[in-house]
Design a protein around this nucleic acid. Structure first.
Lengths: 215, 215
DNA sequence: CCATCCAGTCAACAGCTGTTCTCCGACGTT
DNA sequence: AACGTCGGAGAACAGCTGTTGACTGGATGG
């Protein structure tokens, strides 16, 4: 399938990875708009000027990180929305998947949570666009779910966005839970399940109170 | 009531305000961890060294901004939770109050949304603590509401946190809506109302599916 | 084998940063 | 009227920043 990269391109990719990883680690204790080019290259063990061979600027690197972080999240969403089983079981499994993802890629999750409303415009926009795609994806899955039968397009998207938001809120909360306290993590998990349960209940009774958008 | 401040203290407060306002304005396009001391003093029209007469560091100024921003939000929460009327009317009024607050203090809202997960630890903690207080306050109001009769403490807090989160999400979404597009803002408003409505429905049916926490 | 390419290095630049110390002058107090 | 207080200004410090141009040496492709 994929062409075996030449030695040259392989080395370049390696340096690029070193830059991205160094940035990701530095960003655990600061935000992108304060991240310096020299700071990154120093942490990556490369000369400052080497940076320009890979990125036009730090903002550019930030956009690359968005694609990487949310790209890895994409398959997870597909898994969640395609999960079968009754309501409660689905919820627990979904939150479990989120928790696993947070454990596997904590730096990515932190980066997205931090820069979603961060100080770099292009990065904010990149995140917003990706999340909008997620919402559309979730919305399409919801449209095929019998529980959402008869729902209007606007209501479906409202619920899809709510799910995406909850996913981020949950991931962020799991991240903030102290690594030492197993109890704290368990509590966050249970609260997240309850939230999803409440939303599920609201969803199940959504059409009861009279629809027909009389506006 | 309040002692009339001397000329000296009045001047000091004035400079302090200038620093806070300058910082707030600068923070609309960057984040706190990249905000420089000299940058702030320059924008405030003061010598760099004057900064130290008011704050130990930029982080310190950040904490002051948290207190100011969330302090002004405190009375709004009280107003919302004490609002009477049927469900739908309450929701519309609450979101309306949020929208008014965003219009009145956009820089404050932006600051909180940005620094809640931002790169400065002490500021994150200050925001987290204040939001926890809000949740407690909302939780107490919910406990007195007949709709929540028979709810366990943990469920009440889950719902209270959900409301506080939704408040921030809504405020942030209103802020990001382009100032030009009146339609965009209206759409954000309607979506927020639907979200609250769904949560309200979930709340109304919460105790139906069998309680008793058999775990 | 040779010419080309190109990721990474090095030196240097003007400009910015936080922090210290010293000083000034208006205010508050006696 | 004299004196202590103290918010703010000024100069200077070492250290950092992004960006430039010219250069090197190993991989690439004919």
């Amino acid at each position: 399938m994929s062409h075996t990269l030449g030695v040259r391109q392989a080395q370049k990719q390696k340096t690029r990875r070193a830059l991205l990883d160094a940035a990701l680690e530095l960003l655990e204790e600061q935000s992108l708009s304060s991240l310096g080019l020299r700071e990154v290259t120093r942490a990556a063990g490369v000369a400052p000027t080497a940076f320009y061979r890979h990125f036009r600027s730090v903002e550019d690197l930030g956009v690359a990180l968005v694609e990487e972080a949310l790209g890895s999240l994409h398959p997870m969403i597909r898994t969640i929305v395609s999960t079968t089983g009754d309501g409660e079981e689905r919820i627990v499994r979904a939150i479990g998947l989120i928790a696993r993802h947070v454990d596997a890629h904590p730096a990515h999750v932190r980066f997205i949570a931090r820069e979603r409303h961060g100080g770099v415009q292009v990065v904010r926009e990149a995140i917003r666009d990706q999340l909008a795609l997620f919402a559309v994806e979730v919305g399409e899955a919801l449209a095929e779910d019998p529980v959402s039968a008869g729902w209007g397009e606007e209501d479906l998207m409202m619920l899809a966005q709510l799910y995406v938001d909850q996913m981020l809120v949950t991931a962020s909360a799991l991240l903030e839970a102290p690594v030492s306290g197993v109890g704290a993590r368990e509590r966050v998990f249970r609260t997240a399940v309850r939230r999803m349960r409440l939303i599920g209940i609201g969803r199940a009774h959504w059409l009861e109170g009279g629809v027909g958008g009389g506006g």
